Amino acid sequence: SGWQYDTQCSLAGVGIEMGDWQEVWDENTGCYYYWNTQTNEVTWELPQYLATQVQGLQHYQP
């Protein structure tokens, strides 16, 4: 899939279920990364769990 979410945008106002994931701001890069509080996994790309929800939002315009 060529769909890419801009990680400089916060998910805070989007209104999706974050589940075990937390969004963390990284000052050095000026982007958010994502931290799974259960598994301690850290990812710079939007986790599939969140990406599926964001893509499903009608009002979200990339």
Rank of each mutant, 00 (worst) to 15 (best):
H59F: 11
Q48E: 12
E23R: 02
G13Y: 02
M18W: 13
Y5C: 02
Q22R: 13
N36P: 00
Q58T: 09
D26V: 05
W25E: 04
N28D: 12
G13E: 09
Q8M: 10
Y49Q: 14
D20L: 05
G30W: 07
D20I: 02
T7I: 04
G30Q: 13
S10E: 08
W21H: 06
V42L: 08
T7E: 04
Q55T: 08
H59L: 11
Q55E: 06
G15K: 11
L11V: 08
T37Y: 07
L11Y: 03
D26M: 10
A51K: 12
L50W: 03
Q48D: 13
A12I: 05
W35R: 15
G15P: 12
P47V: 02
Y34P: 00
A51R: 11
P47Y: 00
I16G: 01
N36M: 02
Q38W: 08
Q61L: 10
Y49S: 14
M18E: 03
T37E: 06
P47H: 00
N28K: 14
E17L: 03
S10N: 03
E41I: 06
P62R: 06
Q8R: 13
G30F: 05
E45R: 09
T7L: 04
Y34A: 00
T29D: 12
T29V: 10
A12K: 09
N36R: 02
D26W: 07
E41V: 06
C31M: 10
V54Y: 06
E41Q: 13
V42H: 11
S1D: 14
H59S: 12
V14I: 13
W35I: 14
S10L: 02
G15H: 03
E41R: 09
W21T: 01
G2S: 15
Y32C: 03
A51Y: 10
Y60T: 14
Q8D: 03
T37H: 12
Y60P: 14
D6V: 00
S1K: 15
V14K: 14
E17T: 11
G19E: 04
Y33W: 03
Y5G: 05
E23Y: 02
C31R: 15
E23F: 03
V14R: 12
D6H: 06
W3M: 13
E45W: 02
Q22E: 13
S1H: 00
M18R: 02
C31H: 12
D20P: 07
N36D: 02
Y60G: 14
G19R: 01
Q48A: 12
Q58H: 12
Q22Y: 02
T52K: 15
T52A: 14
Q53T: 02
N28Y: 07
T43Q: 12
D6T: 09
G15T: 10
E23K: 02
Y49R: 03
D6E: 09
E45K: 11
E27I: 09
N40G: 12
S1Q: 02
V54K: 02
V54T: 04
E45M: 05
Q38Y: 14
D20M: 06
Q8A: 15
A51V: 07
S1R: 07
P47L: 00
T39I: 05
I16Q: 02
N40Y: 03
S10H: 02
V42P: 04
W25P: 05
P62K: 15
G15V: 03
D6L: 04
W44K: 13
Y32N: 03
Q58A: 12
N28I: 15
C9N: 15
D20H: 11
A51P: 01
Y34T: 00
V54I: 14
L57R: 12
G13H: 09
N28S: 09
V42M: 14
Q48R: 11
Q22F: 04
Y32W: 03
Q8L: 05
D26Q: 08
S10T: 10
Q61E: 13
N36I: 00
G15D: 14
L11N: 01
E27D: 14
Q53R: 08
Y32P: 04
G30H: 01
G56S: 12
W3L: 12
N28H: 07
N28M: 06
Q4E: 12
Q61W: 04
A51S: 08
W35V: 10
D26T: 08
W35D: 09
G30S: 13
Y60N: 13
V14T: 11
E17A: 08
A12G: 14
C9L: 13
V24D: 08
V24I: 04
D26F: 06
C31W: 02
W44E: 14
Q61M: 09
T52P: 03
Q58Y: 07
T43S: 12
W25G: 03
V42T: 14
T39W: 03
